[in-house]
Amino acid sequence: MPETFSQTDRREALGLLARAPAARLAELLPELPAHEVLRAPEIGTVMVRGRAGGTGSAFNLGEVTVTRASIRLHGGEVGHGYVQGRDKAHALRAALVDAMGQADPARVAPILTPLREEEDRRRARIAAEAAATRVEFFTLVRGEDE
């Protein structure tokens, strides 16, 4: 984790927090640091858009449940959390981690690093399961793999 919490770091952290299982995040951040709630956790939806033909004009596919919250730490850092699903504590923790990262990146590394590793591992397992079902009948004439 770098010394500063750049926009790229923040973006990555917020994405990880949004997808993390709420229970896992609660384990990694059991005690909430002192904070002021700027926007109480709110459950809503986000319209997911797709593109006609995968690359063409946008269309509205359907909604996904999302919960958001905003807080301010006593040091003044403002954090925003947007997480998938309807778990208010999850959104609050995401906002807290966002603000804590701005105050001190080293403090959130022990939360973000396991989340990143666990997500990578979950994805790698699915990728391996998928790879095992790859059709291998035509290996002699298969196109170049990239």
Partner: peptide
């Protein structure tokens, strides 16, 4: 769904 506020719309997903 009708009971929930709409928080926004996503960027088109990259399939």
């Amino acid at each position: 769904r009708t009971t929930l506020p709409r928080l926004g719309a996503s960027d088109p997903v990259d399939t």
